[in-house]
């Protein structure tokens, strides 16, 4: 445990009223903002559920088993993110690099699944302009994918720093904030997967959506 040495460094950190670091607080508040962003996109999807005038409808093309796999992969990346932070706190240099890269890699697999899924849907006739399902589905999952992609870029940036030996207990907060963002994006996906695949994935035709 290299904690003893590092506490001296932490003591230099600026005084804050709550004792919580500025950047960490910033990330928490930003995630609140992002909740409203995804909330509005999800609301759009739910309002337009079952309102498409023509196909393809979700039952025609949504492939729940395949997306279950990519969901599992994304959830695993949360585990590796936790491991990356643990390794950072323990100053396990090898572990930091392995787990950061593993998290980015799992995220990339998820994005790969999404690219294939989008292409398949396009070939089967579901485009942005095809119907309301296409518009709200691609917008919501697309913006989620953009969030994951941003997270991957951030993870790779952190990995580069780790290779240079600049990630350790002194910078554990940077990894923790990255982790907050990454876990949030994962949690949003759980909501999306539940609503768009497990519940909405079997919608057929323009029947009125239950429960309004």
């Amino acid at each position: 445990m290299a904690h003893g040495v590092e506490t001296a460094h932490h003591a230099e950190e600026e005084y804050t009223t709550t004792g919580l670091n500025h950047r960490k607080l910033l990330m928490w508040v930003f995630l609140g903002s992002d909740c409203m962003f995804f909330g509005a996109l999800i609301a759009t999807y739910m309002v337009y559920r079952g309102q498409s005038l023509n196909g393809p409808y979700p039952i025609d093309i949504i492939n729940v088993p395949v997306t279950t796999i990519s969901t599992f992969v994304l959830l695993c990346s949360s585990f590796s993110m936790v491991q990356a932070l643990a390794a950072t706190n323990k100053n396990d240099q090898r572990g930091i690099k392995i787990w950061l890269l593993a998290t980015a890699f799992l995220g990339a697999i998820f994005i790969g699944f999404q690219v294939v899924e989008f292409n398949t849907f396009k070939n089967e006739g579901l485009t942005l302009g095809a119907n309301l399902f296409g518009a709200s589905f691609f917008t919501l999952t697309g913006f989620h994918g953009a969030h994951v992609t941003l997270g991957i870029i951030w993870l790779l940036g952190m990995f580069v720093l780790a290779v240079k030996g600049r990630v350790g207990p002194a910078t554990a907060l940077d990894v923790e904030i990255l982790g907050l963002y990454w876990h949030f994006v994962d949690i949003v996906w759980i909501v999306i997967f539940t609503l768009l695949y497990l519940i909405g994935g079997f919608d057929a035709g323009p029947a009125p959506a239950s429960g309004g």
């Binding site: 337009y48 309102q51 005038l53 302009g129 119907n131 309301l132």
Partner: peptide, 14 residues
């Protein structure tokens, strides 16, 4: 710009 119909009644939008 991208052909969706979120607010266009012609495409079912509200």
């Amino acid at each position: 710009n991208f052909g969706t119909h979120f607010f266009m009644p012609a495409g079912g939008g509200d």
